[in-house]
């Protein structure tokens, strides 16, 4: 069952004496139940607009979206909101209140007691600073408090818009582990982000958005391997000589930053080893070259044939 279903979602913003801006242009997306789903896109791609549509904060100009089967535009969101925790952009909290007081104000109408608040604070590592006013928190601490707020309801679905914003490397790592563990518990964690390394290391599935349209989606490994040819990275002391030897064996290569890159799959590694050894060139290293999400993302979002 899909937790999030988006069909042909369109959002145009009217502008005074100017043509409307299209933030989302016919987006189709299905987010399966369980695991961590990354929603990637450059700034202005329409990620936050999509999240706002899902949470009934803005009214789409066209198409539809459903969250846990409830259509936010038909006023059905309240039926499932108890099962959904969310942060939209920077978590908005009352700066004059303590972290704990902020959470208690959110928790009270939903009959979540002090224990629930304490658990949420523990989970994001904010117990020691729970009594401080939020205005004295760093951006990373505010972000963690926002995640604690999203966790208060012990939700089945977490929708987090840029959850690693403002976090230091240690904080990013903590949040990554937290999100992974939440996904492993069977929850669906939907993360919108432009930090590619975070998504690659955290998510099981990914969708890439550019200019309001979906470019690709699927399991992270499938997205990484799609459209890329297999290559081998060869490390030798004499790259020029190695290139000549491989060319003589009909193997196409390039030299990139001192490495020889051969247009061959890992299954042909033995051929490369033998060819070079026969020519008197010995390997220091050999491994298959895979694209990271950043390369895939840049290729997909900048390629005019792929990007909308």
């Amino acid at each position: 069952m899909a937790v999030i279903e988006i069909e042909g979602l369109v959002k145009n913003y009217k502008r005074f004496r100017k043509p409307p801006t299209t933030a989302v242009a016919g987006l189709d997306l299905e987010v399966p139940e369980g695991g961590v789903y990354g929603f990637l896109g450059p700034n202005g791609a329409g990620k936050t607009t999509t999240v706002r549509c899902l949470l009934a904060l803005i009214r789409p100009s066209g198409g539809s979206c459903k969250l846990l089967g409830a259509d936010p535009q038909r006023g059905e969101l309240h039926r499932v909101i108890e099962r959904v925790g969310s942060i939209v952009e920077t978590p908005a909290l009352f700066p004059g209140f303590t972290g704990r007081r902020n959470l208690e104000l959110l928790a009270r109408p939903h009959r979540i007691g002090r224990d629930g608040v304490t658990r949420a604070l523990e989970r994001v590592g904010l117990t020691d600073r729970a009594g401080d006013r939020v205005k004295n928190y760093s951006l990373g601490m505010k972000q963690r408090l926002g995640i604690a707020a999203a966790l208060l309801k012990d939700p089945e679905v977490l929708i987090l818009d840029e959850p690693a914003n403002g976090l230091d490397p240690a904080g990013i790592r903590e949040i990554r582990q937290l999100l992974k563990s939440l996904g492993a518990e069977g929850r669906t964690v939907f993360i919108s982000s432009h930090i590619l390394s975070e998504v690659q290391q955290t998510c099981d599935h990914v969708a890439i958005l550019a200019r309001g349209k979906l470019i690709t989606s699927g399991p992270v490994q499938d997205v990484l391997s799609a459209g890329t040819s297999a290559r081998l990275v060869i490390v030798v002391d004499q790259p020029q000589q190695a290139q000549e030897l491989l060319a003589a064996a009909q193997i196409t290569t390039t030299i990139d930053e001192g490495y020889v890159i051969a247009d061959l799959g890992p299954e042909h590694a033995a051929v490369v080893t033998k060819t070079l050894a026969d020519g008197g060139v010995y390997l220091s290293g050999l491994w298959p070259k895979t694209d990271d999400l950043e390369s895939v993302f840049l290729r997909l979002t900048q390629d005019p044939e792929v990007a909308p």
């Binding site: 949470l55 009934a56 904060l57 006023g75 969101l77 909101i81 939209v88 908005a92 109408p109």
Partner: peptide, 18 residues
């Protein structure tokens, strides 16, 4: 006014969408 200024109206609506 403070709700709008601090953005807490958004947070409130993610808890009570009605």
């Amino acid at each position: 006014g403070a709700d709008w200024q601090k953005g807490t109206m958004t947070t409130a609506l993610t808890w009570e969408p009605r």
